[in-house]
Amino acid sequence: MSLIASGRTQTITDIEAETVLNDAPPKKTPSKTRVPGRTRFEPFTVVSYVCVSVFGLFCLIPLWMILAGSFTDESVLAANGYSFWPAPFSLAAYQLLFTGQSLINGYIASLFITVVGTALSLSCTASLAWVIARRLPRISRPLTIFAYIPMLFTGGLVPLYLLVTQVLNLSNSWFSVILPVMLAPFLIFVAVSFFRQLPEEILDSARIDGAGELRVFFQIVIPLSKPILAVLGLFYAVTYWNEWFMALLFISDPDKFPLQLILQNLISNVTNAATLPGASASQAAAPVYQLRFAMTVMTIAPILFAYPFAQRFFVKGLTLGATKG
């Protein structure tokens, strides 16, 4: 217990140090009249605000366009292909989506791939990374090279395709989407470098108390590594949620399509209303374009909702390396 507490205090001091750093500029504001570099309205600062705002809009407008489009009546979309304001307002596409089975199937598939995939990825990444980080003689070093070589050389698409379809017979199984992308060597090494920074004293004290290697890993290392596990888990989860290529290769049964693949079918089969989700009832009147936007909204909605809470982990994961240097 005390071990975890000490770990936590460390994080808190880190955060405090960070806030102090970030609060530093405002504290210096009294002296800004004397130091020219600190004045707020320098041309470059103004230009920066403008440029960042413009780029921010550039990033947001496409997303707004999709959201607005998904609530806009098909008549407007069919003339322009887009809309910035949902007028005339229409829920037709969402009604279609929620009455059909396709969206639910898509969500089930995507959720299965994301949840099971992330769990598998995370457990394998953490355990392999710990063995590498443990610096065992004659084991850790070869394992490092073993995990590093695939970053340099890959077998390519054809052997992978043959492996999954001919050898493992995973066609039309969700595992054919999960397994090929399950481990990212890059993220393993991120975990290794985090594990190597864990305070050795804590691990030693556990060993002196008689904890075995596995117990040290599960009861000390894992709890102390929650921040990095959150980062890795999020990166894996986004990869799985957005994974579409593996599904395109290996899944041909429409009932098992994950959301991304359903979306892709909406692009390629835009004229073929019969293949649209939930369109069976009123094929002629199916709001094709609106449906596309609505489906897109449903696909990015989970990321959009999770993003405000998760984005600091992403930033942290990215900056983990750069700032430590």
């Binding site: 050389f153 077998g155 052997p159 492996l163 399950m182």
Partner: peptide
């Protein structure tokens, strides 16, 4: 299986 297998499959 998934990194070295495909290499052999080349």
């Amino acid at each position: 299986v998934f990194a070295y297998g495909p290499m052999a499959g080349l």
